[in-house]
């Protein structure tokens, strides 16, 4: 474990600058900062279109102190692959000498929906890239529309009565591609997340990290609660922190006693319309119980 403490991460230089246009309390900025700190100088970042892209690259300014490429919404995995494959060819042909890490930071829309085909292709081909999905569970950049990653019951502008289906199982899809490494992450557990990014990059890829990213605007909460909500997602079992390597999944943050899902839901305005509907809450609790059983979390504390 290269990061025994948050301090050892904090000592690393920053490659993501402040002064970007992301909202106060936005989890994506923290994810970008942690990822670039871990990945280091010899890294190229690719993002699909999304909040992170529009807020960090407003010409003529940029927040990125590492090389950065944005092409379009649905092709970040193909774009990152192309750079990596080019680096491989140029190094082999002795046209350049130094390699670079390729890391994608994509939202859930650009990953689970419109970018899924390109991602599947890259994972299947075994491209040596690390794909990180910062999942804020809707199309936040265009103003909170539902995506395939929107959870059951959540309000969005296009699911005004609450989302009627469970969110897409992105980790399941990544693992079905037999990726080198896959993991879930939360900014409430920085050391866990940093070590996962380190592992994903050092194993060469294809690696996939699914990172929950609370959105103050779309989830309807006070910006000071971002880390708390990130922690409650884990403590309730809705976002188990685990990793997948060589065919085995392993929990990285134990949750011996889970909190009921209502503790997580009640802080977010997007679930307001179901908070007084026990049958809806029971469905979400049942979903969390299923994940807990699958990944080895403890029972709900009475």
């Amino acid at each position: 474990m290269p990061f025994k403490s948050i301090k050892s991460l904090e000592e690393r230089p920053d490659f993501f600058s402040p002064g970007h246009g992301l909202c106060p309390g936005c989890g994506a900025a923290q994810i970008a900062r942690i990822v670039t700190k871990v990945a280091g100088k010899d890294t190229i970042i690719v993002t699909p279109t999304g909040c992170l892209e529009v807020s960090t690259t407003t010409y003529p300014a940029t927040s990125w102190k590492v090389p950065y490429l944005h092409v379009a919404f649905e092709n970040a995995a193909a774009a990152a692959s192309g750079i990596k494959v080019a680096y491989d060819a140029l190094i082999r042909k002795k046209k350049i000498s130094k390699d670079a890490n390729l890391v994608v930071l994509g939202g859930d829309g650009g990953t689970a929906d419109i970018g899924l085909q390109s991602l599947s292709g890259a994972l299947e081909r075994g491209e040596r890239i690390t794909y990180i999905c910062y999942d804020n569970e809707a199309y936040m950049n265009t103003g909170i529309q539902r995506s395939g990653a929107t959870p059951y019951g959540a309000w969005t502008t296009t699911s005004p009565a609450g989302q009627k289906t469970l969110k897409k199982d992105l980790m399941g899809m990544a693992m079905a591609h037999r990726v080198k490494y896959a993991a879930t992450a939360s900014i409430a557990y920085v050391r866990d997340a940093a070590n996962k990014v380190e592992k994903a990059i050092s194993l060469g890829g294809p690696s996939f990290i699914h990172w929950i990213q609370p959105c103050t605007v779309g989830w309807r909460y006070d910006p000071k609660l971002t880390v708390k909500i990130s922690k409650l997602a884990v403590k309730t079992g809705l976002w188990p922190l685990y990793e997948y390597y060589e065919g085995v999944t392993k929990l990285t943050v134990e949750v011996p006693k889970r909190l009921p899902v209502s503790e997580y839901l009640k802080l977010q305005g997007r679930f307001r319309q179901i908070m007084n509907k026990p049958e809806e809450l029971a469905k979400i609790q049942s979903y969390a119980d299923g994940l807990a059983g699958k990944f080895g979390l403890g029972p709900v504390a009475q």
Partner: peptide, 16 residues
């Protein structure tokens, strides 16, 4: 897996 990715990868490989 598609022409869309073919041109995207060519674009990015050229950018490298």
């Amino acid at each position: 897996e598609s022409e869309h990715s073919a041109i995207s990868s060519c674009l990015s490989a050229a950018s490298a």
